[in-house]
Amino acid sequence: MSNLLDSLTTELRRGTLTLAVLSQLQTKQYGYSLVQLLEQSGISIEQSTLYPLLRRLEKQELVESLWDTTESRPRKYYVLTDFGIEIYEKLKTEWLVNSKQLYDLLKGE
């Protein structure tokens, strides 16, 4: 039973990860700082999912990346593009509407 619950929970959360990541990339972040930010907000994400997700978002032109070599060790920073911001705003609205609907649904049980 706890296995089933786990897999259902993972499924529930999976769709929200992109939105969570996009929300934190309004300012530029590197991989590990993003993990920390998300963890501070209580969102746990598999790192083996996060880094590939960042690359995918970059390929979809929602975020752009640049290597910063000025610090002691080089880091790859990611930040939303204009297109990314636009999509993020739309996704956010979508999420808020959806979660309100679901909330009402669950309230009425």
Partner: peptide, 13 residues
């Protein structure tokens, strides 16, 4: 590129 990024991430952690 992925190798470099992974290395910098691992070192960050």
């Amino acid at each position: 590129d992925i190798g470099l990024e992974l290395r910098s991430t691992i070192e960050d952690m």
